[in-house]
């Protein structure tokens, strides 16, 4: 059998198995869940071994003689000393290295790129030459929004009086932003469903021997049988 056809049947089957959870928890969903779990862990382990350990450590160390790699290797292995309480302190050296290197590399960049650049773009002149009324309005809205949201997330002052009022404005801005984000995410979820539906439709064609339809019918029949057997068992248990 052509691997593409087999792959189509497997993809259609597993998609339908996962969708069956929309009805209720059932053996098909559980099978798909456990299969996905095992496959994902296995794939990641293999990829990490071949790309990182063999490709990134073993070959450069033993074939290319890059002995400097021994230093990060020892640091990395020392993390496993966490499992032995008496020598767990050794792992702190690696953590110190990771935290120090990571912080030194990331903090200035995040402050520069994430905070300073945002401030620089917000404190632009309102009503600069040639600005339209919409640009001026947007600038004012942005300033009010940023300031009021920052005040909402100010924890050192009780939200009373004027601070409370400004915080309420801030929370409205936050909720509007969440609404926009929610709308976009609904679009994203629909897109994922559309993607799977597109594939299921493709797998229902004669090229794939009507995989989707056959599997769907089989699954529904088996689920009906399963439900009726389960109800019979529950019924006999209740009578007992």
């Amino acid at each position: 059998m052509d691997s593409t056809i087999l792959g189509g049947w497997i993809a259609a089957g597993l998609t339908l198995f996962m969708f069956s959870s929309l009805y209720k928890d059932n053996p098909f969903y559980r099978f798909g869940e456990h299969l996905y779990l095992g496959l994902s862990v296995g794939y990641i382990i293999l990829k990490v071994i071949y790309a990182n350990i063999i490709g990134g450590l073993y070959k450069p160390l033993f074939e290319d003689h890059q002995y400097m790699l021994l230093i990060p290797t020892i640091l990395g292995l020392s993390l496993y000393t966490r499992f032995f309480p008496k020598i767990a302190w050794i792992s702190r050296i690696t953590f110190a290295f990771i935290v120090g290197y990571g912080s030194g590399l990331t903090i200035p960049r995040i402050i520069a790129g994430g905070i300073f650049q945002q401030i620089e773009k917000i404190i632009t002149p309102l009503g600069k030459t040639g600005a339209t009324w919409w640009e001026v309005f947007s600038g004012i809205v942005i300033i009010i929004g940023v300031a009021s949201v920052l005040i909402y997330f100010f924890f050192s002052v009780e939200h009373k009086g004027i601070i409370n009022k400004i915080s309420r404005v801030g929370i409205y801005f936050v909720m509007i932003a969440f609404g926009a984000s929610f709308g976009y995410t609904v679009m994203a979820r629909m897109s994922l469903l559309i993607g799977r539906s597109y594939d299921l439709i493709e797998f229902a064609t004669p090229k794939y021997y009507y995989a989707t339809i056959v599997l769907l019918v089989l699954m529904v029949l088996i689920l009906i049988l399963y439900e009726s057997m389960r109800k019979k068992e529950e019924g006999s248990e209740a009578n007992a």
């Binding site: 520069a112 790129g113 905070i115 300073f116 650049q117 401030i119 620089e120 917000i122 404190i123 632009t124 002149p125 309102l126 009503g127 600038g139 300033i143 940023v146 300031a147 920052l150 005040i151």
Partner: peptide, 26 residues
């Protein structure tokens, strides 16, 4: 501090001063 900078900086830049914009330039 950032809230103050945003408000004062916007007022200053609207008035024609680029001091605050340059202060936070990266």
């Amino acid at each position: 501090f950032i809230i103050l900078v945003l408000i004062i900086g916007t007022i200053a830049s609207t008035a024609g001063s680029a001091f605050f914009i340059n202060l936070f330039r990266t």
